[in-house]
Amino acid sequence: MVGELLHEIMRVIDVPAFDFDHDSTAKRLSAFIDDGIYDGFVAFDDAKAIGFATVYQSHSLYGNGAYGTIPELFVRPSHRSRGIGKQLLAALAGNAAGRGWTMLEVTTPPLPSFDRTLSFYERSGFEITGGRKLKLKL
């Protein structure tokens, strides 16, 4: 599903913003989970995975220390608008509270193409606090 998420973003923005390889991504996820630096939650419809969300610990002065960053949250298009994303956010929030984090932070894909995504997070209690996410490849 990570590939589906990244390909959807790239299709909508028409920019090859991500390098995705299934096998290396699966290995990286496994290592992140084994090292305890990444938590993941998967939503199922019967035995079929229909959505997922991940979170990792971040630190900052503005965040009052440790908090959670949500790098990925995805629900397959055929299952959207059914409360799956909200359930995944609830799992992330419960995980964050259990870790003693004071907040969760998320960045949406580029707007206005993903205004609906922004609206979802705002309806879920998130507030806009900053500008755009930027990256520098090293």
Results as ranks from 00 to 15, higher is better:
83 G>L: 07
80 R>W: 05
56 Y>P: 11
41 F>T: 06
31 A>C: 08
34 D>Q: 12
47 A>H: 04
83 G>A: 08
12 V>E: 01
67 Y>S: 10
13 I>Q: 13
83 G>Q: 04
63 G>Y: 07
81 S>T: 06
42 V>T: 12
57 Q>C: 15
25 T>I: 02
74 F>R: 05
45 D>K: 10
17 A>Q: 15
54 T>A: 15
52 F>I: 05
17 A>E: 15
39 D>W: 13
53 A>D: 02
33 I>E: 11
29 L>T: 04
38 Y>M: 15
28 R>A: 08
75 V>M: 06
12 V>F: 03
37 I>M: 06
58 S>W: 06
80 R>K: 09
53 A>Q: 01
60 S>W: 00
70 I>H: 09
76 R>I: 05
40 G>N: 08
23 D>C: 01
82 R>E: 07
42 V>M: 07
73 L>W: 07
65 G>F: 01
20 F>P: 00
27 K>F: 03
58 S>N: 15
46 D>Y: 02
81 S>V: 07
50 I>K: 10
11 R>F: 12
79 H>E: 11
39 D>P: 01
48 K>Q: 14
15 V>M: 14
58 S>V: 03
60 S>L: 03
52 F>P: 02
44 F>M: 10
84 I>N: 02
62 Y>P: 02
77 P>M: 11
53 A>M: 05
50 I>N: 09
40 G>V: 08
30 S>F: 06
43 A>I: 03
18 F>W: 07
20 F>Q: 01
40 G>K: 04
63 G>Q: 13
15 V>S: 11
30 S>D: 13
69 T>L: 13
32 F>T: 03
43 A>D: 09
57 Q>N: 12
37 I>F: 09
43 A>N: 05
77 P>V: 08
13 I>G: 07
36 G>F: 00
43 A>K: 04
54 T>N: 10
47 A>I: 04
72 E>F: 09
62 Y>Q: 08
58 S>I: 03
58 S>C: 11
35 D>I: 04
77 P>T: 07
81 S>P: 04
65 G>H: 02
78 S>H: 02
76 R>S: 12
65 G>N: 05
49 A>K: 08
31 A>K: 10
